[in-house]
Computed example of a mutant assay.
Amino acid sequence: MNRILIAAAAIILTTPLAMAGPIDSACIRSDRGARQPNLCQCAQQVANQTLSRADQRLAASFFRDPHRAQVVRMSKRDADNAFWARYKAFAGAAEAYCR
């Protein structure tokens, strides 16, 4: 029984607390993110608190295709407008928290 508890504790203590999410992964692959991994991790933490996984995937796509952000921002669709409001809130929170 003690061996099982020790093995379980070792697994828990060596497992990262948070796996990289879509924002962190996209940020790290970007030119700036590769030089600032802590900033990418911080942005992911804020994203986890403010955006759904679907929103995070859409926001992460902006790293690969910045024009897509412009298309979403200028869209007349209600869903895109709602996303953009959430995205702006995320960006503001990340800017304030991840300094």
Rank of each mutant, 00 (worst) to 15 (best):
T50Y: 12
L5N: 01
R68F: 14
A85S: 13
Q49T: 02
Y87L: 13
S75R: 09
F83D: 04
W84N: 12
L39C: 00
G33C: 05
H67C: 07
S75F: 11
V46T: 04
R3C: 01
A79Q: 14
S25I: 05
D65S: 13
G21E: 00
S52T: 15
D55L: 01
A7Y: 09
T14V: 10
R73L: 13
A7H: 06
A7P: 09
I11W: 08
V71L: 01
T50I: 03
Q70S: 14
A79N: 10
A54M: 03
A47Y: 00
D80R: 03
I11T: 01
L51A: 11
A10Y: 03
D31R: 14
A59D: 05
V72A: 07
L58N: 00
R57M: 14
N48E: 08
D78P: 09
R64P: 02
Q44K: 05
M19Y: 13
D31V: 14
T15N: 10
I4D: 01
G33W: 06
A43Q: 11
S25R: 04
G92I: 06
C98R: 07
A96D: 12
R35H: 08
N81V: 11
A20D: 10
Q41N: 10
D65M: 05
W84T: 00
C27T: 01
D65L: 12
I11C: 01
K88N: 12
A60C: 07
A96P: 00
P16Q: 04
V71N: 08
A60Q: 12
A9W: 02
R73P: 03
I28F: 10
